[in-house]
Computed example of a mutant assay.
Amino acid sequence: MDMSTLTDPRPSAVRPLPVDAMLADSAGDAAFATTLAKGLMVLEAFKAGAPVLGNMEIAARTGIPRPTVARLTHTLAELGYLDYDADRARYRVGIRALRIAHPLLADMPFRQSARPLMQEVAQSVRGTVSIGLLDGTSMIYVETARSGDVGPHVPDIGMPIPVVGTAMGRAAASLLPARDAARLEQQLDASDAEQWSAYRDAYRAGIAQCAERGFCTCFGEYMAAIHAVAVPLFQAANTTRCYSINCGIPAFRLQPGQLEAEIGPRIRALAASIRAQMNEREPALAAQDAKLRK
Rank of each mutant, 00 (worst) to 15 (best):
T68Y: 00
Y91R: 04
T35L: 13
H74F: 10
G151L: 05
R146C: 08
D83Q: 10
P67G: 08
R99Q: 15
R92T: 15
D149L: 09
I58V: 13
V69R: 02
G158H: 05
A45V: 10
G63R: 06
G158P: 10
I100P: 11
L98G: 10
P67Y: 05
S124Q: 13
G148E: 09
F32R: 13
A97F: 09
V142G: 02
P103T: 12
T62M: 06
P109Y: 06
A33K: 13
A89T: 14
V129S: 05
I58K: 00
P160F: 01
A122D: 04
A27S: 14
P109D: 07
A60R: 06
L105M: 11
A33P: 14
L82N: 02
L76R: 03
A48H: 00
R66Y: 10
A45S: 15
I100E: 10
I64A: 12
R126K: 12
A86V: 11
V142M: 01
E143N: 08
Y84R: 07
A89P: 10
A89Y: 09
M118R: 02
V69F: 07
F110I: 11
L43E: 11
A106I: 00
G158L: 07
L82T: 02
S113C: 12
S130L: 06
D107H: 07
D87P: 05
A122T: 08
E57S: 05
L79E: 14
E143A: 12
A122C: 05
V154Y: 00
T68A: 11
R111E: 15
